[in-house]
Amino acid sequence: MSGMNVRRVYGSDGDKQCGPAPGKAFVDLVGGPLDGQLLDVTGWSGEQLTEGALLITDRGLYGAGGRALYSPIDADPTGPFLWLGDTP
């Protein structure tokens, strides 16, 4: 994989770096504890894409079990998703 721009996909095992798989849809996560990761949105409905995602992370303000809210910028479901804040 030398020379390839490989990024972590949210929910992948540990801190292992991996890239998106062909045939899948991804959005960039921008800001907050998951900044720079990709979110697999394959199969998400239009409503789910416009609402965004509440993602579990131990890297946010609330530690283990906390969640980070990411939502599409300007309601564009193709991404990127912008961090709006953390919640317990």
Rank of each mutant, 00 (worst) to 15 (best):
G60V: 02
C18V: 11
W83D: 06
S12D: 07
D74Y: 09
G66V: 01
G65W: 01
D28Q: 07
D40I: 01
R59W: 00
A68M: 00
L39I: 11
P72E: 03
T78C: 04
M4L: 04
T87P: 02
G46Q: 15
L34F: 05
V9A: 09
G36W: 09
G43I: 02
G31V: 04
L39M: 07
V27F: 09
L55H: 03
Y62G: 09
G11S: 03
T87F: 02
V27I: 05
K16T: 15
F26D: 04
L39S: 04
Y62F: 15
I56K: 03
D76A: 15
V41D: 10
R7G: 09
Y10P: 06
N5G: 14
P22W: 09
F81W: 13
G31K: 08
A53Q: 12
L69W: 05
S2G: 10
V41H: 00
A75G: 12
L55D: 03
L29F: 12
M1L: 08
F81L: 01
T78G: 05
G79Q: 04
D58S: 10
R67A: 10
G11P: 04
A21R: 06
T42E: 06
P72A: 03
G11W: 11
P77D: 08
Y62W: 14
G32A: 08
A53E: 02
L49A: 11
V30E: 00
R7H: 10
Y62M: 14
V6A: 13
Q17H: 05
M4Y: 04
A68H: 09
P20S: 15
T57S: 15
A25D: 03
G23T: 06
L84V: 09
G19P: 05
